[in-house]
């Protein structure tokens, strides 16, 4: 059976993506929390499997995923990497632990998962498309985002390099959302001042997961058959706007 693997599927954008993708594909949901993954699964339509795994444990991803796929006798046709760890912190608060956890979840895990999915032994070389959920910060910069921002830049670097290495068998692209209200960011947007500033600086307003889902579905599908190695910015115009306005 062929499936789409969605990491970070227990909440936020990952959950919305899984629910929508399940209308067209069989799914594998990945996350740390089995209970929350089950609650995503309940809303999915097609055959849905749960691969419970903490992606910060990069060292054992290859072994665990290979054995899990074999045990279930399924292969992965597409991979959507939505798992993301974001902690805003000034450089003075950064420590090695948070750098390692962020890069492991956001970048290193994706690389190890793709290694498994392009393997003949583990996945019968069935992988056709990959979409990374990056961020519009990947190409920009912001205070307190040195860890998260550099991880997303790293993720897009991985995307570009693998898109060349794995062509023409596998297409890999990134979607770069801007500020959205999700489980990961809700605390930031609880601050009315920040929310107002975001709305003010985004020509199309603050985004929602529904704004990202159709773009990912397109890139996963054969309709995007001649697109690889690209960053698709979906941020309501946030990063294109250089208008100087006074409030």
């Amino acid at each position: 059976m062929e499936c789409v693997l969605v990491t970070g599927a227990s909440s936020g954008l990952g959950r919305e993506l899984a629910i929508s993708l399940s209308k067209s594909y069989n799914l594998i949901l990945n996350g740390r929390d089995t209970e929350r993954l089950e609650s995503t699964k309940e809303k999915c339509l097609n055959k849905t499997f749960i691969w419970q795994y903490d992606l910060t444990k990069v060292d054992t991803i290859e072994k665990d995923l290979t054995e899990w796929l074999k045990g279930k006798d399924i292969t992965v046709k597409s991979f959507v990497h939505c798992a993301g760890l974001m902690k805003m912190m000034p450089i003075r608060s950064v420590d090695a632990k948070i750098i390692y956890e962020t890069f492991s979840t956001n970048v290193f895990s994706a690389q190890m998962i793709i290694k498994v999915l392009v393997s003949r032994k583990a996945n019968a070389k069935n992988l056709k498309s990959v979409v990374f959920i990056s961020s519009n910060i990947s190409e920009r910069g912001a205070s307190a985002f040195s860890v998260y921002g550099s991880s997303k830049a790293g993720l897009d670097g991985l995307m570009r390099n693998l898109s060349v290495e794995l062509a023409p068998d596998v297409r890999i692209n990134s979607v770069l959302p801007g500020g959205m209200i999700t489980e990961m960011t809700k605390e930031i947007f609880n601050d009315e001042k920040i929310k107002e500033e975001f709305e003010y600086n985004s020509p199309l307003g603050i985004g929602k997961p529904e704004d990202i889902v159709p773009v990912v579905e397109f890139l996963v599908s054969d309709k995007a058959g001649w697109i690889t190695g690209q960053q698709i910015i979906v941020d309501g115009g946030r990063t294109i706007d250089i208008t100087e306005r006074s409030k």
């Binding site: 902690k87 805003m88 912190m89 000034p90 003075r92 608060s93 205070s143 307190a144």
Partner: peptide
Amino acid sequence: MTKLSLIV
């Protein structure tokens, strides 16, 4: 920035 450091 200090408020963020405080949260961490």
